[in-house]
Simulated scan of single mutants.
Amino acid sequence: MSETAVSEMSFEQAMAELEQVVGKLERGDVALEDSIKLYERGAELKARCEAKLKEAEEKVAAITLDGNGEPSGLKPVEGL
């Protein structure tokens, strides 16, 4: 597992570590206490991925297109 705080991870970093966590849990060769820690870390990573995806969706939704289908500007997105 990474030493990086989940709150500081990019989407790609969080997703890559989440995949590692899931792989370890699926193998089932981890002690119970370690499994619990992995599950907790996985839950944090999942929440981070979801937050970053929502943020990206809001940014994309804020782009407006002109009559030619070209971006014509950005609408302010609350909280960004």
Rank of each mutant, 00 (worst) to 15 (best):
G23M: 14
V77M: 01
E8L: 14
L32V: 08
A14W: 02
V77P: 06
I36M: 10
D66E: 03
E58K: 05
S7F: 04
A43R: 14
T64S: 15
K46F: 08
A61G: 06
K37A: 10
R41G: 14
L74I: 00
L74K: 00
V6A: 08
S35Q: 04
A31Y: 00
G73E: 11
R27T: 15
I36T: 12
R41K: 14
E8A: 14
I63C: 02
D66Y: 01
T64H: 06
E70C: 03
V77D: 04
A61E: 13
A14R: 07
E33H: 04
A47V: 06
S72Y: 00
S35N: 02
L65V: 13
K37L: 02
L18E: 08
L25C: 05
G69F: 06
A47P: 01
E33P: 00
V6E: 03
A47Q: 09
I63S: 02
E19P: 00
E70I: 00
E70K: 08
D29P: 09
K46I: 03
L25K: 05
L18M: 06
K46P: 03
K37E: 10
R27Y: 15
A16C: 04
E3M: 14
I36D: 12
K54H: 07
S72M: 07
P76T: 09
T4C: 08
A16G: 02
G69A: 04
V60G: 02
A51W: 07
L18K: 12
E17Q: 14
E55G: 06
E44P: 00
E26G: 12
S10E: 10
M9Y: 02
S10I: 10
L38C: 15
L65Y: 13
G69S: 09
E19N: 10
G23P: 10
E17H: 11
A5E: 06
S7L: 02
R48I: 07
N68W: 00
A51I: 09
G28D: 11
A5K: 02
M15E: 12
E8I: 11
V60C: 05
V21Y: 05
R48N: 12
A47T: 12
A56K: 11
E57N: 06
P76H: 02
K59W: 11
G42C: 14
